[in-house]
């Protein structure tokens, strides 16, 4: 297995080069269009009775898509140094884990109410 695959990405020198590139106005407009469509989908899903049983996963997927688009294009994580992605996604992971565990831990207690 080639070590070279790793080497050429780990040299921190490439970060400097990643700084300047930014998307153009047209790209921004395209992203805005997709975001609008996704939001319309979200609201649509909410109002369609047939989809109520799978509402949660559908909404989560749609909002994850929006989240990704805003973070990647508007906040240009897609183009910037990967360090910024790290700075964002590491706390985000932690936040998600805290959210999951708190809802579980306190949701669990809800099953044992006092008198």
């Amino acid at each position: 297995m080639s070590e070279s695959a790793v080497e050429h990405v780990t040299a921190p020198a490439h970060h400097a080069a990643a700084e300047s590139h930014h998307p153009t106005a047209v790209q921004y407009l395209v992203v805005a269009g997709i975001l609008t469509v996704l939001t319309v989908c979200e609201i649509g899903v909410y109002y369609i009775p047939a989809l109520q049983s799978v509402l949660v996963p559908l909404l989560l997927i749609l909002s994850a898509g929006k989240f990704y688009l805003v973070a990647a294009y508007y906040m240009h994580l897609h183009f910037d140094s990967r360090i910024f992605s790290g700075l964002f996604f590491f706390p985000l992971t932690l936040a998600a884990l805290i959210l999951i565990s708190l809802t579980l831990l306190l949701g669990f207690l809800a099953h044992h109410p006092g008198p």
């Binding site: 790793v6 050429h8 990405v9 780990t10 990967r82 360090i83």
Partner: peptide
């Protein structure tokens, strides 16, 4: 396995 598809840097 391919250098053309670079691996993530170690911190990443």
């Amino acid at each position: 396995p391919l250098p053309e598809y670079p691996r993530l840097s170690y911190p990443m």
